[in-house]
Amino acid sequence: MSHVVAERTNALNKGAGPLSYIRRGGALVSLLPLIPFLAFIGYFLAFPLAFIVRDSFLDNDKHFTLHNFALCFQGVYGHSFLVSVRLSVISAFIGAVAGAFIAHSIMRTGQRTRRAVAATSSVLANTGGVPLAFMFIASFGAQGLVTKLLKFLGWDLYGGSFTLFSAAGVTFVYCFFQIPLMVLIFSPALENMKPEWREASDSLGGTPFTYFRRIAIPVLFPAFLSTSLLLFANAFSAYATARAMTSGTLPLMPLLIGNLVDGNVIANEKHLGHALAVCMIGVSVIVMTIYALVLRYSKVKK
């Protein structure tokens, strides 16, 4: 496919084809058809982002300051940052490991089963949000069927300090969309494992363990690592589920920012919200950059 694209681009560069007039005026003219898109992006994406980045460096008197960012890592905000990171790491780890096992087991089932699982995963991974929160409240809440069932079996879920509305509870609920997301993204990597590799390894004298260690892990590791990073970013920025479950009381970065957006802003915290939002973007950019680098430098090419 790529050579077809290359040929097409070549043809265009030589000025062949009916669309060559578009380029005759040079780079600026060739931007003209992109104006609607660029205008849309400019107004609805670049403008708001530039706005919060600018405001995050301003104090209440519109003077430049770094104080807002210093506040981000202190007190309740610093604590929420840690809680958010921890929650995201744990839920990404559980999601990645469990999802990888499930994806591996599903590989061996029939095509229709695999398609049903893929469809289910895409629903669970994407439509989490508010319904997911209530589903868990219904099943694991104090009056939930699962809670009652476990109690009947002798395990009082609420006997200790557990509540669904704590960081641990939210981590548990996040797994409900983290695992399907892993299954969804990791399955194609598993499908790309050629049966010939296993057979070649066997016929060359390799044991199942050598195959796993020398071939399967090196091939799959980049996909596993990059997907884990994606899961981290996903949990880190999740808002709807946590808010619906805890009404915004848990010290999580997104919930704190949400409270600040929602109004009730104490005057001197106005720009702190912007700084927090920028920090969130910063963490996300770092994680996604590593994600892109892992994929680029992985030896396995499609």
Binding site: K194, E196, W197, E199, A200, S201, S203, L204, R214, I215, P218, V219, K299, V300, K301
Partner: peptide, 14 residues
């Protein structure tokens, strides 16, 4: 036994 497959049998990370 040494086996040569139809295609794609080389280990991609090596």
């Amino acid at each position: 036994m040494g086996m040569v497959f139809q295609a794609y049998s080389l280990f991609p990370t090596m």
